[in-house]
Design a protein around this nucleic acid. Structure first.
Lengths: 331, 331
DNA sequence: CTGTTAGCGCGTTCAC
DNA sequence: GTGAACGCGCTAACAG
């Protein structure tokens, strides 16, 4: 009634400038990293801003800079414990670096492509792909737009697309050595090599190491690397005394399946997993496993992102994330 | 060398307009929901846009509309299976509604407040808070900015802040009835009522129902609702034949702990959980539990968001998410 | 239904 | 170090 002006008008840098008795440019510089403002004026501006409740509009900033501080995070089946761990670490690292993770939870396939493409509408600073291998055409599109993509634990090499991969060579070797040292002589590796890059690589290095140590080994292919397939595998597994599961989730299933058959882990058969998810340390499993350092991997991914932002033409890089053995009671 | 003009200039609506032989306004209308363009011109514009590889800049759009299509999602300990399920469903629902979830993974406390406040810099459409109760001052700030907040499974009622909560009354009652029908006479409810709203409410309704059915019941307070505390609880639990754990994670720990003591579930003691996380269906546990419908809850949350966007002054609403009993072998 | 005009809020040249 | 101008890419309101 009394006020003709709108009560909820947005506070802009102009308002702050007026109140602080300076120009808009000065206000802008005060809130821009790499500024150059005299301490006194800066203080005046900050004070005025606080009194008015001013906040920089990052949308406008992104418009100017041709780059926002968003980073796309593409991930499917967050449900899986290790996937959840990955995402949490990645999100935390991004926020720590003052990026904002925009989460794209996608079922595989066409939808994912579409969702990823959407990111170009927001001038994102980059994309982290966890659970899906985008087609090269799409990668090229991002490269053309100057938006770096980092693939996490993915297979194929794509020009100007950096990757960070878990050290599967070391993991496979450690698994084999640990089982053999524990007394196993007839080994098996269980995993869906067909659908998972990590599984495939783990299997390869595990087998290679077994051969080098002159130990018998065979593969047990499954459809998915999950609890159910591990459980089912136990039913038809014979003549082995040491099993390497390419993830803990599946190892838990295997152990439960073996128990149902009356077999005792690790006496009848030793089991080793991969990931070190929380369940691995549960009393019911107490699973010996290869720990993946997701916190470290997240930092590596962001480092790659940052360095490529500085040099778009850089040759593609592959960063290796270390794994470490966690000795528990199953091997 | 040959081209003086920059090769990578961004395609703008102006370029599309020129190529299609129309004005910028027309191009804009073509890509704006609730447009009004003649089919023919629309086709021309779309064609030109496709040829040029044009994409609307959503940052600029957000600048105009005073509102972006981002929605903040605040969540701690994504690690927990049920938290992960929640987040996945929420993110999927948001994307389905054409929002972009920006994920704030935060440790409790001051940091969280700061992180949430950051959202105001992006003109977000709303905020979904899963794992943290923001102070009223902060809520007021968002209300003043016209940004709706929806709290998920949180306690305190705050003016103009909507909430969606799991139907804990039904869950507690179902738990009690199921245990008693199964033959239990000495009940216990295990949970960290002090730190979790859901746990507190479940405990209350469980006890109330026991009283109504004239069955003995007591509480077993723990520090956190996790596996370790469930496991530890088993060691000092005596004289009970039915236990309700406020989440499955803890129920798994309890079962493992009981087994270690040589007790047999469900004969010596019946156990019922809450959430229905994937582990609950594992053979090793086969846990009877109350299923939370996260998919539904996510939709409810977004509905609240949308309706409040239409009417900021609306009285606060509380939406109830149903739970359902999943009968397995532990009760 | 279409073209035109006027901002949205800010960063970054320039002169001074 | 500071202020004035211009432009980032787009949508909304109006005139035709």
């Amino acid at each position: 009634m009394s006020a003709p002006e709108k009560p909820l008008r947005k506070i802009t840098s102009f308002d702050v400038a007026r109140r602080a008795g300076v120009s808009r440019g000065t206000v802008s510089r005060t809130f821009t990293p790499n500024a150059s403002v005299s301490p006194e004026t800066r203080e005046k501006v900050v004070k005025a801003a606080k009194e008015l409740g001013y906040r920089v509009n990052f949308l406008a900033r992104g418009l100017i800079n041709q780059r926002s501080d968003f980073v796309g995070v593409v991930a499917a089946s967050i449900n899986d414990p290790y996937r959840a761990m990955q995402i949490e670490q990645i999100a935390k690292s991004l926020v720590r670096h003052n990026f904002r993770p925009i989460l794209l939870p996608d079922s595989q396939g066409e939808n994912a492509d579409h969702a990823i493409e959407q990111l170009l509408h927001y001038n994102v600073s980059g994309v982290l792909v966890i659970s899906y291998a985008p087609p090269t055409a799409l990668c090229a599109e991002f490269a053309a737009a100057g938006v770096p993509i980092v693939l996490i634990n993915k297979a194929d090499s794509i020009p100007t697309v950096d990757r960070v991969v878990s050290n599967t060579d070391a993991a496979g070797r450690l698994a084999a050595v640990t089982l053999i040292e524990g007394g196993a002589r007839q080994l098996v590796v269980i995993g869906a090599a067909a659908i998972s890059f990590t599984a495939r690589r783990l299997q390869q290095s595990f087998i290679a190491c077994c051969h080098a140590l002159e130990t018998e080994v065979r593969t047990f292919p499954v459809k998915f690397n999950d609890y159910a397939n591990g459980f089912a595998a136990a039913a038809t597994l014979n003549g082995v005394d040491g099993a390497f599961c390419v993830n803990d989730y599946m190892a838990c299933g295997l152990i439960d399946g073996l128990r149902q058959r009356g077999l005792v882990v690790p006496f009848d058969i030793r089991v080793i997993g991969h990931d070190d998810v929380p369940q691995a340390s549960w009393a019911s499993y107490d699973l010996t496993t290869l720990k993946r350092h997701f916190d470290l991997q997240a930092e590596q991914a962001i480092d790659l992102l940052l360095s490529r932002m500085n040099d778009l033409e850089m040759a593609e890089r592959v960063e290796l994330t270390p794994v470490s053995l966690v000795r528990r009671s199953t091997a």
